[in-house]
């Protein structure tokens, strides 16, 4: 299914909002957005890429045609991943990781245990719904973290990984975060309310 929308004459952020609405409502395989200014071209490109589309843009006279094809990770393609919840899944489990050490006592041991814990988490299967990193826990998501591949694997399998933005900023790690979405307290609280079970580490 291919859809086209005309966003000429609209100033930012209107073209992005129109694109967002269309993707959410129609989940198109192919999408062409026509814009007439450079900022809108770039912003619509960014938004489609953020949604997992493969994007290209062409100049047509004074207009730009931004074309997106639904890719692997797009909303439309991602839909089946989300429905995993409704299959065999009995409950939604949210795991809060507030430290980079598991348990108290020996730090070295604590780190080992935390690595092992995160590696084993996948055994929860589809019931693992959200994995949230706060405080020292955010250190598990940065470039030199031992468990980065594990977390990337979890994310690919459909687990939402949320990383506290305030914490990353506090530790000066915002740019080093390699996995998950930066989040805020409102998202975390909302997720807690929706989860069937919240596990605190």
């Amino acid at each position: 299914m291919s859809t086209e929308i005309d966003c000429r004459g609209l100033a930012c952020p209107a073209p992005v909002l129109k694109t967002k609405e269309l993707i959410e409502q129609e989940k198109p395989e192919k999408l062409i957005v026509i814009v007439d200014n450079e900022a809108a071209r770039q912003n619509v490109t960014r938004f489609m890429e953020y949604q997992g589309f493969d994007v290209s843009a062409s100049e047509e006279g004074t207009d730009f045609h931004v074309t997106g094809h639904a890719g692997e990770g797009s909303e439309s393609a991602a839909a089946p991943v989300k429905t995993v919840e409704s299959e065999e899944v009995k409950q939604k489990i949210m795991v809060m990781v507030g430290t980079d050490r598991m348990g108290h006592g020996d730090d070295e041991l604590g780190l080992k245990l935390m690595v092992s814990f995160l590696k084993t988490l996948k055994e929860m299967g589809g019931e693992l719904w959200r994995l949230v990193f706060v405080n020292n826990g955010v250190k598990m998501t940065i470039s030199d973290s031992e468990v980065l591949p594990v977390l990337e694997e979890l994310e690919k399998s459909g687990v939402y990984i949320l990383v506290c933005g305030t914490c990353l900023t506090h530790f000066n790690l915002l740019e080093k975060k390699m996995v998950g979405e930066t989040t805020n307290m409102l998202d975390i609280v909302t997720a807690m309310q929706l989860a069937d079970k919240v596990v605190n580490i």
């Binding site: 100033a11 770039q42 938004f47 900023t169 979405e181």
Partner: peptide, 19 residues
């Protein structure tokens, strides 16, 4: 940087003035 700003930038909520 305001923590949420980076994600908004990724989503294309960037004012024309920045470009």
């Amino acid at each position: 940087i305001i923590p949420e700003a980076r994600e908004y930038a990724q989503m294309g909520f960037i004012p024309a003035g920045a470009y």
